[in-house]
Amino acid sequence: MSDISARVHEIRALENLAAGRTAIHRLHPLAKLFSALVFIVFVASFGRYDFARLAPYLFYPFIMMALAELPYRLLLPRVLIALPFCLFAGISNVVFDKAAAFSVGGVTVSLGVLSLATILLKMYLCVMAALLLVATTPFTELTAQMRRLCVPMVFVMVFEMTFRYIGVLLEEVHSMTMAYKLRSGNKKALEMRHMGSFVGQLLLRGFDRAERVHAAMRCRGYSLKHVPPSRRQFKRADALALAAVCLPSLLLRFITVW
């Protein structure tokens, strides 16, 4: 239950962060999107045991967080969401890859442990890159950029509406589960046999609501046909920022510091 309100809170918190006014926030969304992608591709391209070579990439999230004035506390815990599957794949490495890598003061570290550490570090870097993108780019700019990139209109619309409806439906789910709990002697979770009518009900309500909202939007002149994407100039600062991420990523890929 607290889970649901936590999720609503998460979205709002990210949107608040994205409304900031730092130099990073002002960058062209394309520059931010592209540098995040380049960063992730470079990080992902490292081998299974390249833990030490990956470490310098940590500068990116830390510097970005500081420049964009993002609170560490809000972003760091989110990384945990990606943890279970990575941990599963990583721990299997510990089991299957038992050859010794090196030993520190008599404790032998196996290659599997090293690769687990590498996977976790990669996970952290990649998750942070994506979070930094949305924490510094307002949602409307993100979708405007999608339009400029010629992403099909229908899809951008669906994307926008899904995002907006998530908050609405989560609140609906919250009140429905609350009502269910109060009437069911404080059960921890729904019974499976009630799922059909519960989710079905939520769905029908949602569809009705969507139709009402759509009618209201039509009344205000909304149509799928023409939404001209707002133009935005790619300035020198944007190019510099892009280069500032891409060049070190490239260099660190081929130069071994440690």
């Binding site: 229908v154 619309m157 669906v158 926008e160 509406m161 899904t162 995002f163 907006r164 409806y165 998530i166 609405v168 439906l169 769905l203 949602g206 569809f207 609501r209 969507a210 139709e211 909202v213 759509h214 939007m217 799928l224």
Partner: peptide, 9 residues
């Protein structure tokens, strides 16, 4: 489109 949005949410 709006129904698809709701469905996704």
């Amino acid at each position: 489109v709006p129904i698809m949005g709701v469905a996704g949410a």
